[in-house]
């Protein structure tokens, strides 16, 4: 399929800007498979069911920022700049969360959260041996599934500082469960 996507897509989006909703839908429909290809090529480490979510996030960003395309300028550089930005964003967010899930099982809750009513208390007891802020970060990230950015906002820390604190706290918890409390 060797078509000139630049002028085709630009014409569709120009029509969309003039209020043609059908042209806009066609534009998004033609762009979606290209985005899917980009996501698939980059996203081998990610479960496939995340891929379509990311495609949709990029489509939403294109939609939200469509007024930043200047009809007098080339369309493809604009489009791919948005795709690059949002795909990188989406992978960063999910990469971190996936990593946290693994850490969760490996270090914080070494026992299956089965019928044992003491498990939660054990976790609470372990958390109690961390400093309050670190305990709060671990609780928020793993028991309440909050994103580091949100935790940071609540505790007025940068997202990076939250990640670092979380990483250190998990390492300390790991050391505790292996019987070397410090």
């Amino acid at each position: 399929m060797m078509r000139d996507t630049e002028s085709d897509w630009a014409a569709l989006l120009r029509a969309a800007k003039a209020g043609d909703g059908r042209a806009y839908a066609r534009f998004l429909r033609e762009v979606a498979p290209v985005l899917r290809g980009i996501v698939r090529a980059r996203g081998q480490a990610l479960p496939v069911h995340h891929h379509e979510d990311i495609v949709q996030e990029v489509l939403l960003a294109i939609h939200a920022k469509r007024h930043t395309w200047d009809a007098g300028r080339p369309l493809r550089p604009w489009l791919f700049a948005i795709a690059r930005h949002k795909v990188a964003d989406a992978f960063r967010a999910r990469g971190a969360r996936l990593h946290l899930d693994i850490a969760d099982r490996a270090e914080v809750l070494p026992a299956e959260p089965g019928p044992d009513p003491d498990a939660a208390r054990d976790a609470a007891r372990l958390l109690g041996r961390l400093d309050p802020r670190a305990a709060e970060i671990v609780r928020s990230a793993h028991l309440h599934d909050e994103a580091p950015a949100e935790i940071g906002r609540r505790l007025s820390m940068s997202e990076g500082a939250v990640r670092v604190a979380l990483h250190r706290a998990l390492k300390r918890l790991g050391a505790m469960t292996q019987g070397s409390p410090r």
Binding site: A16, K17, G19, G21, R22, Y24, A25, L28, R29, A32, E52, V55, Q56, L59, L60, H63, R66, H67, T68, D70
Partner: peptide, 21 residues
């Protein structure tokens, strides 16, 4: 949500014509 449904929904929204400039 299916991507096709999302596209349908987005296509029904009004475009804000004001440029950033």
């Amino acid at each position: 949500m299916r991507t096709e449904d999302l596209i349908e929904r987005l296509a029904r929204e009004e475009e804000s014509a004001v440029s950033v400039r």
